[in-house]
C-alpha cells in the first residue's frame, strides 16, 4: 500500500515570525493602556507631584534653605537675597550681581535636585512607575490567565519576552522622562537645569528597573509584591549601606550619574567622601550592562518556565 505523504505544514509559507513579533509589540503596548486604573493612578501621582512642585516654585521655596544657612550668620543677607526685595541692591553691591545670580541658581538647583529629583523622583516615582508597568508586562497576562494565548502561538518564547519589553518601553520611558520633564518644568529655572543635567540618569535607571521588574514578572507569581519589596526595602537599605555594599543597587548608579552631572555644573548633591560614588561613565556602563543582562536573563527564565497557574 502506498504511503500518503506527511501532512504539509500549511501555515508556514504565509506566515512571518517578524510580522507576528511586531504585532505582539503593538498588541502589548495597547493592552498596557487597558490597565486604566494603573495609568490613572500614575498620572494622578504625577499631577500631585507636579502641583506640589509648582506650589513650591510659586512660593520661591527652592532658594530658601541655602539662604537660611547663610542667615545664621547674617539675617539681613537672607532678606537681601529674596528677589525683588529692597535689600537686593545691598547684596548685589556686596557680592556683585553676577555672583549672586550664579549662587542663587546653583543653590536652587541643588535644593531641587536633592529634595525632589533624588528623594522623590528617583527614590519613589521612577521605581514605582517602572514596577507598575513592567511587572504587568508578563505578570498581567499571568494574573488574567491570558498568557496561554501567546504561548499557544508559534512565536518563540524569547521573542515574546522581547516584544513585551519593547512594548513596555514607551510607557515606562515616556512616563518617567515625560513625568520628569513635567516636574522639572514646574520647578522653573532650577528644574530646567536639573532636566538638562539628570535626564541621562533617569533614562538609564528606567531601562534597568524596567528590565529587572519584567524579569520579576516572568519569575514570580506575585511580581508586584516582590518588586515593591525590592524597591522600597532592599534598594533603600542597600542603597544607604556604608562602603561599597550599596553598589549592588540600581539606584546607586543613577545617583552616581546625578552626582557627576551635578558636579560638572558646580553643584554638590551629596558628600563624595561619605557616599563613595563611582564615576559617571562607569555608572552608565553598569546600568546599560545590567539592563541587557537582566533582559537576557528574563528571556531565558521565560523560555524555561512552565506557567502551570496561567495555562
Amino acid at each position: 500500500m502506498a504511503l500518503i505523504q506527511q501532512p504539509r505544514p500549511t501555515a508556514a509559507p504565509q506566515t512571518s515570525l517578524l510580522r507576528a513579533w511586531w504585532f505582539l509589540v503593538l498588541l502589548s503596548w495597547r493592552r498596557q493602556a487597558r490597565a486604566r486604573q494603573m495609568v490613572w493612578i500614575a498620572l494622578g501621582l504625577l499631577a500631585f507631584t507636579t502641583a506640589m512642585t509648582a506650589v513650591a516654585t510659586a512660593a520661591d521655596l527652592w532658594h530658601r534653605p541655602r539662604f537660611r544657612q547663610l542667615a545664621v550668620a547674617d539675617q539681613m543677607m537672607l532678606d537681601a537675597l529674596v528677589p525683588g526685595s529692597p535689600a537686593q541692591a545691598v547684596a548685589d553691591a556686596t557680592f556683585g550681581a553676577a555672583g549672586v545670580a550664579v549662587l542663587t541658581d546653583q543653590s536652587a538647583a541643588q535644593v531641587f535636585a536633592r529634595w525632589v529629583v533624588a528623594a522623590i523622583f528617583l527614590g519613589f516615582l521612577l521605581p514605582l512607575w517602572s514596577l507598575s508597568f513592567a511587572t504587568e508586562a508578563i505578570g498581567g497576562d499571568r494574573e488574567q490567565n491570558s498568557l496561554i494565548w501567546l504561548l499557544a502561538r508559534p512565536l518563540p518564547r524569547p521573542m515574546v519576552y522581547l516584544a513585551k519589553f519593547v512594548a513596555l518601553l514607551p510607557w515606562t520611558v515616556g512616563l518617567n522622562m515625560g513625568g520628569f520633564a513635567l516636574v522639572c518644568a514646574a520647578a522653573g529655572r532650577p528644574g530646567l537645569t536639573a532636566l538638562r543635567l539628570f535626564w541621562p540618569a533617569v533614562l538609564c535607571a528606567t531601562l534597568a528597573f524596567a528590565a529587572l521588574f519584567q524579569l520579576m514578572g516572568a519569575a514570580f507569581r506575585r511580581p508586584a509584591i516582590v518588586a515593591i519589596g525590592y524597591s522600597f526595602f532592599l534598594e533603600i537599605i542597600l542603597g544607604n549601606m556604608p562602603g561599597v555594599m550599596k553598589r549592588v543597587s540600581i539606584g546607586f548608579y543613577a545617583h552616581c550619574m546625578m552626582l557627576e552631572a551635578a558636579d560638572r555644573h558646580g553643584i554638590q548633591i551629596d558628600r563624595p567622601n561619605v557616599y563613595w560614588p563611582v564615576d559617571g561613565t562607569t555608572a552608565i556602563i553598569v546600568l546599560l550592562t545590567t539592563t541587557v543582562t537582566l533582559l537576557v536573563m528574563g528571556m531565558v527564565v521565560f523560555s524555561r518556565t512552565q506557567y502551570h497557574d496561567s495555562v
Binding site: T49, S132, T135, F232
Partner: peptide, 22 residues
C-alpha cells in the same frame, strides 16, 4: 487589583512620607 493597590498604598505611605520630609 494588586498593582493599583500597591501604587496607592505606597503613595500614601512612602510618597507622602518622602514629600513631607522634603
Amino acid at each position: 487589583r494588586t498593582v493599583p493597590l500597591i501604587m496607592t498604598w505606597t503613595a500614601l505611605f512612602l510618597l507622602c512620607r518622602q514629600l513631607a520630609t522634603s
